[in-house]
Design a protein around this nucleic acid. Structure first.
Length: 271
DNA sequence: AGAGGTACCTGGCAGC
DNA sequence: TGCTGCCAGGTACCTC
């Protein structure tokens, strides 16, 4: 579930519900996520108050005076603010309990997510310092992609999913944006014109913004937990629709695998 | 430097 | 009903 729109929605939701609160204690039930969760947070976080929660790419950053907790949701992670008395369920790995009786709970069946602690400026963290531009920022332009892609042989789909180039464009939205732009997903990034890149940028931004708005409405109640994913499903044109007719030309949508990720496209509309 | 493959882990579902 | 195999929203890291 976590593509950028859901991370953004999660980030906004939990910030609203935790900003200014003071941590009482931290419970780690499963420390083995993608990397081991630093047990130091059990010692450091109690007594700290949440200054703000921000996002960089798909990383959620919880800011306190003592330092910053960097959270990634991986493929299946979720964060909820719930009442501390809510019984934990399977895959509820970490609780950050506040002294007002609420709790920030991390749930992640596949455990591809992660938590890191950094005292310094979060942008200096190894995982964050190599990240490319934000897709919804002014720096993300056709010119930028055009320049970065010269002489690159890599498929355009992998290129726009490369976090060193631009962060937060995952499999679903890469697939969708390429369809909307009429670009074949395997086309070499270095062979795409500046004009096509301008169009692609527009479509990536459009599709992300739409999904953020949709996510904002469906997942707004973070205190109840279990926000239903699938809010973006109605909006999707081609993702997950192999074998169905293309929404534009009605020819059958095809599937192929690029960089171990499945990709749906229309061989007629995307060249 | 760039390209390509591997690894981490569990759950859901199709097919038999 | 139960087993097997395949697929899934991510991305760091390794090798060539």
């Amino acid at each position: 579930m976590p593509e950028l729109p859901e991370v953004e929605t999660t980030c906004r939701g939990i910030e609203k519900l935790t900003r200014g609160k003071t941590v009482d204690h931290v419970v780690i039930r499963q420390k083995q996520l993608r990397w081991e969760v630093p047990s130091a947070i059990k010692r450091i976080l109690p007594g700290q108050s949440i200054q703000q929660i921000t996002r960089r790419g798909k990383y959620i950053i919880v800011h306190t005076k003592a330092g910053h907790l960097i959270i990634h949701l991986g493929m299946s992670g979720r964060l909820w603010v719930i009442d501390s008395s809510t019984p934990y369920q399977k895959h509820d790995h970490i609780d950050i309990q506040f002294n007002d009786g609420s709790c920030l709970r991390y749930h992640d069946p596949r455990r591809f997510g992660s938590m890191h602690w950094i005292e310094d400026e979060p942008s200096t963290h190894k995982l964050l310092k190599t990240l490319g531009v934000e897709p919804l920022s002014k720096q993300f332009t056709g010119e930028y992609l055009f320049t970065k892609s010269r002489k690159r042989q890599v498929a355009i789909k992998q290129f726009i999913m490369d976090s060193k180039i631009v962060v937060g464009v995952g499999n679903i939205y890469a697939t969708e944006a390429l369809f909307l732009s009429g670009i074949h997903p395997t086309k070499a990034a270095g062979k795409i014109s500046k004009a096509k890149y301008e169009l692609l940028i527009e479509k990536i931004k459009q599709v992300l913004k739409k999904a953020i708005n949709a996510g904002g409405t469906t997942l707004k109640d973070f205190s109840v937990g279990k926000g239903k994913p699938g809010y973006f499903k109605q909006e999707l044109q081609v993702y997950g629709k192999q074998g169905e007719p293309c929404p534009k030309c009605k020819r059958v949508l095809k599937k192929l695998v690029i960089g171990q990720r499945s990709t749906i496209y229309c061989s007629s509309c995307q060249r």
